[in-house]
Simulated scan of single mutants.
Amino acid sequence: MAVANWTTSHPSTFILVGIPGLEEEHVWISIPFCSAYILSLLGNGFLLALIRVERTLYEPMYLFLAMLALADLIVSTTAVPKILCNFWFRDQTIHVNMCLAQSFLIHSLTAMESGFMLAMAFDRYVAICNPLRHSAILTNRTVGMIGLGIVMRGAVLLGPHPFLLQQLPYCRTNVISHTYCEFMALVKLACVDTRVMNFYSLAVAFLTGGLDFILIVISYILILSAIFSLHSKEAQLKSLETCSSHVCVMLVFYIPAVFTFLCHRFGHVAPHVHILIANTYLIFPPMMNPIIYGVRTQGIRQRALHILGIKPA
């Protein structure tokens, strides 16, 4: 890895190390990364196309799922190609403007993903706890407004990121010990007091993922309470099956997200472990979402098998 002589506090480029301590293993690590990215492109692309052409899937749950799939495609495409260029060709340099754009897109889109998961939890809450009013509450207009609100929240709360980072003096080094331009990884390179930036980052994390997670947990407590109050075992099982795919997707998303957040601010974990988990958080949920929903959601499974010409067993 070549590092330029350090003469400025406002570099034109940054250098992405990759996974510190595992540089010799980058080629091998790239295999699951590349495979997950290809599966993410195929799965989410197919999911979007399926929901687009099948009008029977024009329901709130599937529309929110389409929004989540689109966010998954963009966030993985923002990060993975550059990571693979680093792993395969040692292309570690990234222009400062591209770095700031990547940081904004990754953080704003992951905030949007969290919001779409909350919207899906709200849809399940209304469908199970107030089924007679589901279509009246979640009209197409309401779904569109919720989706727009989630996008605006992510853009407004994370919009200051690139401008704040651009103002920081990087008088120590331009080497980022990470595979992509993560906000806190850049903040740690600054040679000024960054307590305000840390507080801002904590506040944004709480107002997006933290608040969403709390509301999702509350939603599912109410949903489970309603499910177990049903007298029919068949109805209970059907409702649980409908919700189980959502719970799986949320666990795949939130567990590595929380781990990464805590490591950056409070933990002392080996850098390669931390960065591998951070990459898992970006790469594997987009791959798993269409697989989980395709296997466990009856509407998508049936329409997909119909399009593929496969008769369900």
Rank of each mutant, 00 (worst) to 15 (best):
S12E: 15
T13A: 05
G18H: 00
I19K: 02
E23N: 07
W28H: 10
S30E: 07
I31Y: 12
C34Q: 10
A36C: 06
Y37M: 00
S40I: 00
N44D: 02
A49R: 12
L50S: 07
V53E: 10
M61K: 11
M61S: 11
F64A: 02
A66N: 02
L68P: 04
L68V: 07
L73A: 10
A79D: 07
V80W: 02
P81D: 08
K82R: 15
L84K: 03
N86S: 09
F89M: 10
R90I: 10
D91N: 12
I94F: 02
M98P: 00
L100H: 06
Q102S: 15
Q102R: 04
S108V: 13
S108Y: 10
S108I: 08
S108K: 12
L109I: 15
A111F: 07
A111D: 03
E113P: 01
E113K: 13
S114R: 05
L118E: 01
L118S: 01
D123M: 06
D123E: 13
R124I: 11
Y125I: 04
I128G: 03
I128D: 01
I150K: 03
V151W: 09
L157M: 05
L158D: 09
G159Q: 13
H161R: 14
C171H: 13
N174S: 11
I176N: 01
S177N: 10
H178R: 08
F183Q: 08
C191S: 08
R195W: 13
S201P: 03
S201M: 11
S201W: 13
A203L: 15
V204Q: 06
L215S: 03
V217A: 10
I223T: 03
S225Q: 14
S232R: 07
A235G: 05
S244Q: 12
V247A: 13
L251S: 06
I255K: 02
F259W: 07
T260A: 06
C263N: 12
A270T: 10
A270R: 14
V273L: 14
I277V: 15
A278Y: 03
T280M: 08
I283D: 01
P285W: 08
P285R: 04
M288Y: 06
M288D: 00
N289S: 01
N289M: 09
I291G: 03
G294T: 08
V295H: 10
R296V: 00
Q298E: 15
A304Y: 03
L305G: 06
L308P: 05
